[in-house]
Design a protein around this nucleic acid. Structure first.
Length: 403
DNA sequence: TCTGGGGTCCTAGGACCC
DNA sequence: TCTGGGGTCCTAGGACCC
């Protein structure tokens, strides 16, 4: 989808159309650009750029927080349109999808006319623009759709994959980021064609397993990495996490403790939504100087209970924390299992009680919002965060706030 | 410039087992 | 007595994607 978040915002507020719009947060907040309108991009603004930098480049831009629920809803509408074209659809992210079109020629005709009809139906059904790349591999189709933006279609004729890729910068290959790009440049490799011309053994020696995959990609093959397997058979998530960057770095032990509880609750809630149990719990700490540390622990027994995750998270935190001011904390559930596994008789009663309590809690959260119920420590987190960011929120000043 | 939040995949060392 | 080779699990870190 083209400038997806911005385009959805425009549907709800047409006055934004044609203006420099930045989705991601207010101009003076800690955070980065999630999406920028094409008008904003003219000023040099792009996604992942710090909001404060974007503001300096274009102070007159309109900064909006964004609405995740709306994007999810529209993502689902997009998915429904795509399903009309192939039974094998894979949403690769909220605004990007792959369709396996093999065997649909009789129904949709040759690639270009199928792409055309999809393009038109997408516009009619969702009022949103997309770009389409068509080819014999996911890799080439993805790159082709990038080249087709905005609002375009690009079909790479079978056999022409390598020719299409050859003049492009190596950075265009998904998986080649800043670091790999620098590494490749230092070897004198700048274009995909340079890569394709190299000896596979050289690449493997220099870049390991990844080098071998790169050799394949440079020729347009879905070799290794993300593109393995059939289109559309992604299963359960492999990890579930939440993290929080404080608007002001903090050393407040109770506030940090409480934030770990709150994040653990959010993770546990989503584990239950997915009917999954976590065997490994990881935390992340980021200090003021941006140095980042992770600590993890594998639990005796997989769990989806708020307090068990929270206790483990706080335990890891206390062991690792230097006492210095902290910018970010995070909680990650990994090694997800579909059952909790062997439970000792001793644990069973306790676990059962929690299960009932949490069922009720989840129902209330569904009805009254996520903030409606929390472990006592989680409530403290919300409260302390409010006071930390605005001392006016201290209780006693206003009887209503004290409640 | 002053750096979010949600993910996936890969590497590498050490413990431990046979 | 002076040390193999294979495997798996655990932990920490990092590149990368949207």
């Amino acid at each position: 989808m083209d400038a997806f978040f911005v385009s959805v915002e425009e549907l709800f507020d047409p006055s934004l159309k044609g203006k420099p719009v930045v989705v991601g947060g207010r101009a003076n907040e800690r955070g980065v650009v999630s999406a920028a309108s094409y008008a904003a991009r003219k000023f040099g603004i792009h996604s992942a750029m710090p909001l404060r930098t974007a503001y300096k480049l274009c102070p007159q831009a309109i900064f909006v927080e964004g609405h995740r629920e709306r994007y999810s809803e529209y993502s689902h509408r997009v998915f429904e349109v795509l399903q009309k074209f192939s039974p094998k659809v894979e949403m690769a992210s909220i605004d990007e999808a792959y369709l396996d079109m093999s065997g649909t020629e009789r129904l949709h005709g040759p690639p270009l006319s199928a792409a055309n009809r999809l393009h038109e139906l997408m516009k009619r059904s969702t009022d949103l623009n997309c770009s389409i790349g068509a080819s014999t591999s996911r890799l080439v189709s993805k790159i082709a759709s990038d080249q087709a933006k905005p609002n375009g279609i690009l079909w790479i004729v079978p056999g022409q994959e390598a020719e299409f890729l050859a003049p492009l910068d190596v950075r265009k290959i998904p998986g080649v980021g800043k670091v790999t790009e620098q590494h490749l440049h230092s070897c004198g490799i700048r274009k995909v064609g340079d890569l394709a011309a190299l000896d596979e053994d050289f690449l493997e020696e220099r870049f390991g397993k990844w080098g071998l995959a790169l050799a394949g990609k440079s020729k347009g093959l879905d070799a290794g990495g993300w593109f393995d397997g059939e289109v559309g058979d992604r299963e359960d998530p492999k990890s579930i996490s939440h993290e929080h960057t404080f608007s002001i770095d903090t050393k407040d032990r109770a506030a940090l403790d409480a934030m770990f509880v709150r994040l653990s609750e959010m993770v546990a809630r989503r584990l239950r939504d997915h009917h999954l149990y976590a065997r490994t719990l990881q935390i992340k700490l980021r200090y003021s100087d941006f140095s980042t540390f992770t600590r993890s622990r594998t639990l005796d027994r997989a769990t989806q209970i708020d307090s068990e995750l929270a206790d483990a998270a706080r335990g890891l935190f206390h062991k690792a924390w230097t006492g210095a001011a902290i910018r970010l904390v995070g909680v990650y559930a990994q090694q997800l299992e579909t059952g909790e596994g062997q439970t000792s008789l001793l644990d069973e009663g306790r676990t059962e009680k929690w299960r009932h309590a949490l069922e009720a809690v989840d129902k209330m959260r569904g009805k009254y919002g996520d903030g409606s119920v929390s472990l006592a420590a989680g409530m403290k987190a919300a409260f302390r965060a409010r006071v930390h960011e605005n001392p006016e929120n201290l209780p006693g000043k206003d009887p209503k706030k004290r409640d």
